[in-house]
Computed example of a mutant assay.
Amino acid sequence: MPETRLLPPDDAGLDAAAEILRAGGRVALPTETVYGLGADARSDAAVAGIFAAKDRPAFNPLIVHVADLAAAARHVELSDTARHLAAAFWPGPLTLVLPLKAQAGIAPLVTAGLPTLAIRVPAHPLAQDLLRRFAGPIAAPSANPSGRVSATEARHVMAGLSGRIEAVLDGGACAVGLESTIIGFGPDGTARLLRPGGIAKEAAEAVLGAPLLPPAPEAGITSPGQLLSHYAPSGRVRLGATEPRAGETMVGFGAVRGDLNLSERGDLAEAAARLFTVFHRLDEMGAKAIAVAPVPEEGLGLAINDRLRRAAAPRD
């Protein structure tokens, strides 16, 4: 593998990124949520390259990014409820898990053998530009080694994947900083929250006019982001702390102070945007034991706490 190229956010960089994708290579691209590791979703070999670069388990499905609702409709069956959610939140940090159309042309590795596809329309202008230049669906999980902290800056991608992928398209820092909210649908059409993320649960429920149900307990892994241990810094993480124990690096929130802070103002949007940056900083500091202040379980706090619990989960 040649040295990973850092591509500028201009016409030359975008053209180079599209050419790499057309040749079956991998390009990390910025979205409004986190950086995604993109490859041609129609190519078995290109998608296999994503799994190889990330050391990602093959039973963990990928999200496919498309330019607009019309492109999504070429690959999945869109119910009226799905269209309603798409109209409200696309382009944006919402992923819908929908029945895969026959002859959709998506590589089987993308869906991990499931009859559904996780799909979204990103809002980041560079992601949109690249999708239109490439003129095809891009499979793009988060651009980090599997189970580690998601990348919200190009330098985070380079730190984790340099030498494993062809290029990184540098789009600066991601505005949302958390992965997309993932919503799927039961056999009766009821909407289920498969992963909390950049769209608050309450906002989606307001559009639906009904509560989002939790994932069906017997369903197993039905979408990305459902592994128990995930999004983890190198050090061990303890949650709900109001002060550090001996040897711990403290991550504060609001009135709880720390060595690093998600948001001194107690602002959940700021905390969401800073979460993975703080995780990366902890790794740079060499933190071996990490204590994290409580974060309210409301709004974007639901997604923040989901990531924190997965970061704190026992690891093999």
Rank of each mutant, 00 (worst) to 15 (best):
G36Q: 13
A139T: 12
P296S: 02
L169R: 08
E179N: 05
F134C: 03
G38D: 12
R26Y: 03
I199A: 04
A154V: 10
E297L: 01
A271K: 01
A39G: 15
R42G: 14
Q103C: 12
L37N: 13
H124R: 10
P30W: 08
Y35V: 09
T4E: 13
A255V: 09
D68E: 13
V237N: 01
E153L: 14
V292G: 01
E218M: 00
L239Y: 05
G225A: 12
E77T: 10
L239P: 00
V110Q: 06
T181G: 06
P9Y: 09
G147R: 09
P296L: 01
A46Y: 13
G163I: 09
R74I: 01
L130S: 12
H65V: 09
L268N: 01
G136Y: 07
H75L: 15
G105A: 01
V207H: 07
E77M: 05
G189C: 06
A291F: 08
A269S: 12
E19H: 13
L227G: 00
L300H: 04
V292I: 10
L37V: 14
L275E: 05
V168D: 11
T81Y: 00
R309L: 08
H84V: 03
A140W: 05
R148C: 05
A58C: 00
S146N: 12
V207F: 08
L208P: 00
V278G: 01
